[in-house]
Write a protein that binds this DNA or RNA. Structure first.
Length: 543
RNA sequence: GAUUGCGUAGCUCAGUCGGUAGAGCAGCGGCCUUUUAAGCCGUAGGUCCUGGGUUCAAGUCCCAGCGCAAUCACCA
């Protein structure tokens, strides 16, 4: 049953036993009060106190007496952290502890601690969690450290650690063993700390503008609000199929019907589709709805929010050691993202879909014959099967989107109505609708609409959409009649917005992949059975 | 789904033309009271991703599969 363990694990187990039985340390620790974060402990260092103590020590040594306790004004700190460096000099041991705030050296002199504590320091392994207490001073070489007067064991680590200099670099291992990645590569932990602050800033921004944060169903009987393949599940007691939501949109609109004026939700969506650098099957989105607003109010809100976040990232990124190219004095925060230097100065770029189309395709988008010719020229061979406006959309994505300057946040406005089923058509030009998409760094970060609130048009658009569904799609695409009914009750005119939080965090933290901003991204499971072995397993699962 | 690349010790990586499996770190045993990837002496550690094939001989060449990455496709 017990697998034979590696030599390293075996020796760590032997140490655990020795620490417990010979040295009297509980290998899994206990409550510790009064612990300081390592970065806070470091700030308690006083050069004056250190120099005064150093002088008193030398005088006492020359005189052959003990140091007068009153001469030691160094702050005493109590800290805990994981061992990431260990240098044994014989009767003096230097080790570095690490916590989420940084690293701090602990210097353990045989003459300053109990015999069992010195043995513990001497034999501590990379990865062990230690608790140390003592005055904060520095070494001859200038390293600020805790001169330990006591050391105890927080937790013994049994697993083999990563390489101490290169850390964990294999991307697969970093994602699969994120708990190791987070301490072995401090920049990983910094990205997630920044993500947390970005999300809380977004909430403060929305709250300050009077939006109410609500929570709507993740388990939905009908997966609406977007066109994506949902994950399916089943409720046993009610014996009903359920879908993980692909978007909260239809529920948030019901909130407007119910009388909420301004609502938002920050939560997970789930889409059963491909995985790549900007797609994870579960991702975080913020959706916003404002009664009596429109896509213009959403544009102002989005521009202000993203600009404010970018400004706040100047200090964040400097503190985390990330690049910042320019500051506000030069026209707006410029935050590098990979090879791109993205400038978040207001106002963001605005360009009409129709104009960008003309520029990219070289013809008018309403000249469908020319558009179809262009599509064939581009090699879009399924062009003949598509509606005119879908061809327009494909040609746009192919020819026009690449023209958007990736270094400037850009609103593309006034999309064709035909590709936007939840959006209100323009009153002056019904072929177009009041919708924009914002692009940053070549990524689509989010769309916004003036919401369609005419129940008859909405019903017609849903019905039209369902007609085009193939067999597979029709298993999860169902008309949400209750939503249409809510529109009959009456939804005020409104603006709505969706923003991909993960993508925004990627841009703000200079992360190349969505997996770098999601703590535990989805990977294939390693223990998965082979296809033939799996068949018998599967039938046994539900019981 | 397609193409390309990668998969060797716990980790980071070498491995030439097909000819006995290598280093550093980590580990283990020593030495050292000011180290900064500490150093020095000694020692141990391998399913070369898996399965086939070619060959006197395969980590290396061929085929299939698995995993990861990048690019493309898909995702209105």
């Amino acid at each position: 049953m017990e697998q034979s363990e590696s030599e390293i694990v075996a020796s760590r187990r032997a140490k655990l036993k020795r620490f417990r039985e010979e040295l009297g340390f509980e290998p899994y620790g206990q409550r510790e009060d009064g612990l300081l974060a390592l970065s806070d402990a470091r700030t308690r260092f006083s050069e004056d106190a250190h120099v005064a103590f150093d002088l008193a020590s030398k005088e006492a040594k020359a005189a052959g007496t003990a140091v007068n306790a009153a001469a030691d004004t160094r702050a005493v700190v109590r800290v805990a952290g994981r061992v990431v460096q260990h240098r044994d000099m014989g009767k003096l041991v230097f080790l570095f502890l690490r916590d989420a705030t940084g690293d701090l050296q602990i210097s353990v002199s045989k003459s300053s601690v109990a015999a069992n504590a010195f043995e513990l320091a001497k034999h501590a392994d990379y990865g062990d969690i230690l608790v140390a207490e003592g005055p904060i001073g520095r070494t001859n070489k200038g390293e600020i450290c805790v001169w330990a007067t006591s050391i105890s064991l927080g937790t013994k680590s049994l697993a083999a650690p990563p390489e101490k200099w290169h850390g964990l670099t294999d991307p697969e291992l970093r994602y699969r063993r994120r708990y190791v990645d987070m301490y072995a590569n401090p920049e990983t932990a910094k990205v997630f700390a920044m993500r947390a602050r970005i999300v809380s800033r977004i909430r403060r921004f929305m709250d300050a503008r009077g939006f109410l944060e609500v929570e709507t169903p993740v388990l939905q009987p009908i997966a609406g609000g977007a066109a994506a393949r949902p994950f399916t599940t089943h409720h046993n007691a009610l014996d009903m199929p359920l879908f993980m939501r692909i978007a909260p949109e239809l529920y948030l609109k019901r909130c407007l019907v119910g009388g909420m004026r301004k609502v938002y939700e920050i939560n997970r969506n789930f889409r059963n589709e491909g995985i790549d650098r900007s797609h994870n099957p579960e991702f975080t989105a913020m959706e916003v709805y404002e009664a009596f607003g429109d896509y213009g109010t959403m544009m102002e809100l989005t521009e202000s929010l993203i600009h404010d976040l970018a400004v706040s990232m100047i200090d964040e990124r400097r503190a985390a050691g990330l690049r910042v190219d320019a500051d506000l004095a030069e026209g707006g925060p410029t935050l590098p993202w990979g090879e791109l230097a993205i400038n978040y100065a207001k106002p963001f770029v605005r360009v009409k879909f129709e104009d960008l189309f003309r520029q990219g395709a070289g013809c008018e988008m309403r000249d469908f014959a020319a558009v179809r010719a262009k599509a064939r020229e581009l090699g879009l061979h399924h062009e003949a099967k598509l509606d005119d406006w879908l061809v327009v959309n494909e040609v746009f994505e192919e020819c026009a989107e690449p023209l958007i300057d990736p270094c400037r946040p850009t609103f593309v406005t006034d999309y064709p109505s035909a590709v936007s089923p939840l959006t209100r058509p323009s009153r002056t030009d019904p072929a177009l609708c009041e919708r924009w998409d914002i692009f940053i760094g070549g990524m689509e970060v989010g769309p916004a609409y003036t919401e369609l609130n005419d129940p008859d048009i909405q019903l017609a658009k849903f019905t039209e959409q369902l007609k085009g569904a193939d067999d597979e799609e029709s298993t999860f695409r169902t008309l949400d009649e209750d939503f249409v009914e809510s529109l009959r009750v009456g939804m005020p005119p409104a603006g709505g917005l969706g923003i991909g939080i993960d993508r925004l965090v990627m841009l703000l933290t200079d992360s190349a992949s969505i997996r770098d901003v999601i703590l535990f991204p989805l990977l294939k499971s390693m223990g998965a059975s082979s296809p033939d072995a799996g068949a018998s397993d599967e039938s046994g699962k539900g019981a």
